[in-house]
């Protein structure tokens, strides 16, 4: 399968904060949504910065549409829509001014489409952006990101701070966007329920390192969590354990193949694993 985005061995060190993004690699195929998950400070925004060249990576390659994006590659940036978590646009602008600026920046700016989103999201067009609620300003940023007909959307915590109704509306917009098979979304989010709803792949990072990338199908049908007593845990084959976490009188064990584990360990309770639980096990648990 061809990839719209390929991150290969990307590293970036910030000497002042002592944070290192360490040889991160993942790929986002065409037509897919990838959730990008990690705790605060895990390196999600740094990774997005390296992808978009707002941060200069130390080493590694980032390929967008099969090509490394340099400063002069404006044609690649024409095909990317970006939404940051807050204050994407100056607060003193109105929607009309935003549209005029964007029309001057993007060759494919579609004012009619932008207006359609503004109407669908019920955004007051005459009000200055600074008077918008957080949810409204995120909707505006999403409308702006979609209105130049991008092929790749990169969203950094774009749904955080939104109420469930608004999030649901926005997730529907994302799902509609990826109906086109050459459209993809990289969605960094803390709200794992959103990712469970829309993401095809989930990439977990922790402390600047990639933990794993899993497909949602694998997560739903293969990955599982075993609820073990201490004696049961000691009897497990270490090869079956991806990560484990002790909780009171129980040890939760993440396994890659729940059905195999069910057959092998008949007396152990095995549950489906949620993105949240998987992240907690991978981040806070012990990885074998």
């Amino acid at each position: 399968m061809e990839n719209i985005l390929e991150v290969q061995q990307v590293s970036k060190t910030f000497p002042k904060s002592n944070f290192t993004l360490d040889k991160l690699s993942f790929a986002l195929p065409y037509g897919a949504i990838m959730g990008f998950v990690g705790e605060n400070g895990a390196g999600k925004t740094t990774t997005i910065g390296c992808i978009l060249n707002t941060i200069h990576k130390d080493i590694g390659n980032v390929k967008l549409f099969g090509k490394e994006m340099l400063d002069g590659d404006t044609d690649i940036r024409e095909r990317i829509g970006v939404v940051y978590d807050t204050d994407n646009f100056p607060g003193f602008w109105t929607v009309k001014q935003l549209s005029r600026v964007m029309a001057g920046l993007y060759k494919n700016w579609d004012h009619a489409l932008f207006q359609k989103y503004i109407e669908n999201f019920h955004l007051p067009a005459t009000q200055k952006i600074k008077h918008y609620s957080r949810g409204m300003s995120m909707q505006l940023a999403i409308a702006a990101a979609l209105s130049h007909h991008p092929k790749l959307l990169i969203l950094d915590e774009a749904t955080s701070g939104l109420d469930p109704v608004m999030r649901d509306e926005i997730l529907d917009v994302f799902l509609e966007f990826v109906q086109e098979e050459d459209h993809s979304i990289l969605l960094s989010s803390h709200i794992t329920s959103d990712l469970e709803k829309v993401a095809d792949y989930i990439t977990f990072i922790h402390n600047g390192r990639l933990i794993t990338t899993v497909s949602k199908n694998d997560l739903a049908y293969h990955y599982a969590v075993m609820r073990c007593k201490e004696s049961q845990f000691l009897a497990l084959d270490p090869c079956d354990i991806l990560a484990c976490r002790k909780r009171d009188f129980q040890i939760d064990v993440l396994v890659a193949d729940g059905k195999k584990a069910e057959r092998k360990y008949k007396d152990v309770v095995i549950d489906h694993v949620s993105v949240d639980e998987m992240m907690l096990l991978l981040v806070k648990g012990e990885r074998i």
Partner: peptide, 20 residues
């Protein structure tokens, strides 16, 4: 200076523009 009060300064870098 107003650009940097919002994330517009960062956002601009993602638009089809050269830094120059």
């Amino acid at each position: 200076c107003k650009d940097s009060t919002a994330k517009w300064a960062k956002h601009k870098l993602t638009a089809p523009l050269k830094r120059a």
